[in-house]
Amino acid sequence: MSAGPYNYSYIFKYIIIGDMGVGKSCLLHQFTEKKFMADCPHTIGVEFGTRIIEVAGQKIKLQIWDTAGQERFRAVTRSYYRGAAGALMVYDITRRSTYNHLSSWLTDTRNLTNPSTVIFLIGNKSDLEGQRDVTYEEAKKFAEENGLMFVEASAKTGDNVEEAFLETAKKIYQSIQDGRLDLNAAESGVQHNPSQPGRTNLQGVLSVQQGGKDSCSC
């Protein structure tokens, strides 16, 4: 029974960007820990999370950089865009100002990443329907006009969180398959791991016969 390789064949770098308080860290936490982090403090810096996912039978390790959203850190967080394969751009559906700033975040992303970087727009806090300040339709239109993938999600309920991260990975993987993303480019944000571990059985026993037949009969 071949259990197949359990390791990742790729590493994708993601960044999460957007205004302060839109829920970037909560999205990361929900994705990596499957939990909602209430009273999440403001990120002063760049948090780092990782998870292994599977796309088209390939194990992919996501390295996610969750950036501080405060305006005063904007100049510093620009250092982190470089080499991102995926950018999750987040706004808060209950605060229009966070939506209005998207074009500026988008400009940064376009300027600081490479053309094959997949940008995914997330309207967070979709559980707070009553306080909605940005309609789904207008965000959808914005996304379409700018060629972004889009979903409304809730870091609190977990709704669509998994999807956003996975869809981004699928798109990146697709780009690799299509040859649009050059793995050898220094800033592709993707590392490929071509080694294929040996097939082994499920009993956890790695059978070993080193010298082949000759050494066994002596």
Partner: peptide, 21 residues
Amino acid sequence: TGKSPIGTRESVVRYQMACKE
């Protein structure tokens, strides 16, 4: 840190899966 050799995580998974067979 992802530095661990390619087989390490795999062997943990394999061992754990065997334990849970």
